[in-house]
Design a protein around this nucleic acid. Structure first.
Length: 115
DNA sequence: CCCTTGACTATCT
DNA sequence: GAGATAGCCAAGG
């Protein structure tokens, strides 16, 4: 195992294990929080190498879709785990839990658009 | 070395 | 908003 992997893995595991129930983070966010900006593509590898169980399913794409092929077994598993924690999906995307900014007035008044 | 491979992203059309 | 495109970067062949 390379020196890089040892350090990267430890940093990533720490961040991922800190994601709270019902919340999600993107691969890029995890990489940045771990101190490795530009290494989003390596986050999945690091999680796969984890020796202890991690809430890997709370890590999703930056566009709020899941990284696995829609409908695949892995996709359904991840989605199920998230939904168990109260995470909602609309049009294949995770609905942001935040009730704050960058939401249009319509969205605040009427809620997320259905698809 | 050179080339391909990703559980990725930001930025155009 | 859905594709296409171009960056990204360690690993492995």
């Amino acid at each position: 195992m390379s020196e890089f992997q040892r350090k990267f893995d430890k940093a990533v595991w720490k961040i991922v294990s800190g994601i709270r129930r019902g919340r999600v983070m993107s691969y890029g966010q995890v990489a940045r929080a771990a101190g490795f900006p530009r290494h989003a593509r390596m986050v999945s590898k690091a999680m796969g190498r984890s020796t202890v169980p991690l809430p890997w399913y709370r890590v999703i794409r930056s566009d709020r879709t899941l990284a696995f092929e829609a409908g695949s077994k892995a996709y359904r598993k991840q989605r199920g785990l998230l939904e168990n924690e109260g995470v909602r999906f609309v049009g294949g995307k995770v609905v942001p839990k935040d009730t704050d900014e960058n939401k249009s007035l319509d969205e605040l008044l009427w809620g997320p658009r259905e698809q």
